[in-house]
């Protein structure tokens, strides 16, 4: 504490004088602490992280401050904290009243459309069963064109009179040998990689119709490298990475994998 008392003309030999100057400096520092903490509490905007920091600050302050001041700060924090908590609940309630889960079904068609644009045929077909509006949106023919082309190949699909969706459905429900590889869940996951790799309305790149599995493997290989970079301690092979993503977690895993598909051009050259 004596470090703070640097008044040069104080007689340090006298313990009374030293104590008095220490007390004076201490008082100044403490009052600054009080005003700073008060400012922090008042500025605290109810964001969870900030209020945690604020609480920690007050706890520290209470430890050093005399009791009266400490209590005052705690009271202030409490009023402020309650207020922000109340605002949070109010906000949440207003969100719920405006009907979040029920409102989901009122998702405007164009937003729903752009959500469905991200889906692979399996999820798209499942989503179509969910409700009437969804079915209308999911069954739009342009969504199925690239899928059908990818399964049947451009040559076989040309000159068809049926809709792309029906073509794809026929092929997928067993008429076509090439669909066999799409059935098992893991294959399906690989397939997902392929479908989501480009936006569905874009024409399927040629390599997808040629060697889907190899391409999938290629994607997997590239992205597993990346996954390893992220967690250098994990030593899973590609299957391991996929297995470790449980059924519910498949989507983020897939997204992570296909996002970083490094060698698309390289692959084309190798062909």
């Amino acid at each position: 504490m004596s470090a703070y008392s640097d008044d040069s003309d104080v007689e340090y030999d006298d313990p009374q004088v030293v104590l008095a100057s220490v007390a004076r400096v201490k008082k100044g520092i403490l009052s600054e602490l009080v005003s700073d903490t008060r400012l922090a509490i008042e500025e605290c905007d109810g964001v969870a992280r900030n209020s945690v920091i604020c609480k920690a600050l007050v706890n520290e302050a209470v430890r050093t401050l005399p009791q009266g001041k400490g209590k005052e700060l705690q009271r202030l924090l409490k009023s402020q904290g309650l207020k922000s908590a109340r605002e949070d609940t109010k906000h949440l309630k207003s969100l719920q009243q405006s009907g979040a889960p029920p409102a989901m079904e009122q998702l405007p068609a164009d937003i729903l459309g752009s959500v469905l644009d991200w889906l692979d045929p399996y999820s798209l077909a499942a989503a179509a069963c969910a409700s009437k509006q969804w079915q209308e949106e999911a069954y739009k023919d342009r969504r199925w064109r690239p899928f059908a082309l990818a399964i049947l190949g451009t040559a076989r699909a040309s000159g068809q009179q049926e809709s792309w969706r029906e073509l794809f459905f026929q092929a997928a429900s067993g008429g076509h040998s090439r669909t066999a590889y799409m059935r098992s869940p893991r294959r399906m996951l690989r397939q997902t990689l392929l479908w989501t790799e480009t936006k569905p309305w874009q024409e399927a790149p040629d390599f997808r119709t040629v060697i889907p599995q190899q391409v999938a493997r290629f994607i997997l290989k590239g992205s597993i490298q990346e996954a390893r970079d992220d967690h250098s301690d994990s030593s899973e092979d590609e299957e391991g990475v996929l297995c470790s993503a449980g059924h519910g977690d498949i989507a983020p895993a897939v997204r992570k994998l296909w996002r970083t598909f490094p060698g698309r051009l390289k692959l084309k050259q190798e062909q």
């Binding site: 409102a103 998702l107 937003i111 999820s123 969804w134």
Partner: peptide
């Protein structure tokens, strides 16, 4: 956002999708 929303659909059965989005089965 739409990608994140699509994540809520991927790999789910129709009833799961319905539950997640609060859809009423109106078919």
């Amino acid at each position: 956002c739409t990608d994140a929303m699509a994540d809520h659909i991927r790999g789910k059965s129709p009833s799961q999708v319905r539950a997640c989005f609060g859809l009423k089965p109106n078919l």
